[in-house]
Simulated assay, not measured.
Amino acid sequence: MSQIITVWGNPGSGKSMFCCNLAKVLTAGKEKAIIINADSSTPMLPVWMPDRLFDASDSIGNVLSALEINTALVAERVCVLKDYPFIGVMGYSAGETPFSYPELKYEKIRQLILEAAKLVDFIILDCSSHVINFFTPTAIEASDLAIRILTPDLRGVNYLKAHQPLLTDAKFHFEDHLTFAGMARPFHAIDEMGHLIGCLDGLLPYAKEIERCGTSGEMFHALGYCNKHYLQSLKLVKERLQPSEEMILPDDTDGEESSSEDTDEVETDHDFTE
């Protein structure tokens, strides 16, 4: 059974980019990971892989609306990245809307997460910013480690104030979540925002190169442009999940800000059902 990491927070805080960077860090030693995004308002398959054509059969909506969700169905619907074959993704396809499928149900989401967890070492749940979306609270409840990413400004502060009352049940382990300041810039009053939020466990600084990767369909190439503060936040997550192991960066992280240790070349004959 894999470890389940849930990433949630306010809109525009860099959640999806963080999930991509985290997946690359966690699979640098050839472990396997699946990123799951069930936000139908922003189909992610064409964002992760803009050069690939997807149809409804590839969509996570097809899985969540199935009569029965099992390991075989999930494995069949995982889209494996060509350049990073130890990372698979699940999300909605281009052109789909919140009305393309029946309303999400807790039982189906829970089953999807549990079945996916049988396939790989890590499940990364990239959540909608709307906690009233069933996927987000279900993902937080199912997580071994929850990470909330908030912009260090009044948007982030008020987002947290508005959503904290919805997550007071003990099953959400709200006080145990890691909190990162996403899209942090030099003009942000980080110390003041940290005081208002409660505490900040790390920074995910904004960089134009990272933004360019996000807007050009190269989200999985952004890790090389993460500076030491961003890498330290990733390291903290890695330490929480695997305390005895050091963080290894993939050998393609060649950005100016980061340094990496040499790792073995990634194999191309990968199968998530193995």
Rank of each mutant, 00 (worst) to 15 (best):
169 D>I: 00
20 C>D: 07
43 P>R: 00
32 K>L: 14
42 T>S: 12
255 G>S: 11
175 E>G: 03
220 F>Y: 13
126 D>W: 05
190 I>C: 12
210 I>T: 03
32 K>V: 09
221 H>K: 13
27 T>K: 06
89 V>N: 02
88 G>A: 07
158 N>R: 14
4 I>Q: 05
28 A>Y: 06
221 H>Q: 12
268 T>V: 12
210 I>C: 04
91 G>C: 07
63 V>S: 04
125 L>K: 01
44 M>T: 05
114 L>T: 07
188 H>C: 14
261 E>D: 13
176 D>F: 02
180 F>Y: 08
27 T>S: 08
267 E>Y: 09
130 H>Y: 13
112 L>V: 05
157 V>D: 03
261 E>S: 11
103 E>C: 09
240 R>T: 09
205 P>L: 04
108 K>E: 07
72 A>I: 08
142 A>W: 02
269 D>T: 08
53 L>P: 06
57 S>K: 11
218 E>H: 10
28 A>M: 08
256 E>C: 10
181 A>L: 15
180 F>D: 03
56 A>I: 15
97 T>V: 08
157 V>L: 14
173 H>I: 03
216 S>R: 06
158 N>G: 08
210 I>P: 00
117 A>I: 05
1 M>V: 13
270 H>N: 06
214 G>H: 04
5 I>V: 14
113 I>E: 03
199 C>N: 14
36 I>S: 00
47 V>M: 04
172 F>T: 01
227 N>F: 01
11 P>R: 09
15 K>R: 15
35 I>V: 12
25 V>C: 11
36 I>V: 09
162 A>P: 06
158 N>I: 15
262 D>Q: 14
128 S>Y: 04
153 D>E: 06
65 S>H: 10
204 L>N: 01
192 E>I: 15
51 D>G: 14
120 V>E: 02
177 H>S: 10
69 I>G: 04
177 H>L: 05
19 C>G: 02
144 D>Q: 09
217 G>F: 01
17 M>R: 08
54 F>N: 07
77 R>Y: 00
85 P>D: 15
129 S>N: 12
66 A>R: 02
62 N>P: 02
171 K>T: 06
198 G>W: 00
71 T>R: 15
167 L>T: 00
143 S>A: 15
67 L>D: 14
81 L>K: 00
97 T>G: 03
132 I>D: 12
201 D>M: 06
259 S>W: 14
235 K>S: 14
98 P>C: 11
153 D>Q: 02
163 H>C: 06
54 F>I: 08
9 G>S: 11
193 M>T: 13
94 A>K: 09
265 E>C: 10
86 F>A: 08
211 E>Y: 08
263 T>A: 15
154 L>Y: 10
246 E>T: 09
15 K>V: 09
133 N>S: 08
91 G>N: 06
50 P>V: 07
252 D>N: 14
27 T>W: 05
8 W>T: 13
51 D>M: 10
2 S>F: 08
77 R>I: 05
136 T>W: 03
219 M>P: 03
158 N>K: 12
198 G>T: 05
202 G>L: 01
12 G>A: 05
156 G>N: 04
231 L>H: 01
114 L>Q: 13
70 N>D: 15
264 D>E: 15
7 V>D: 04
74 V>R: 00
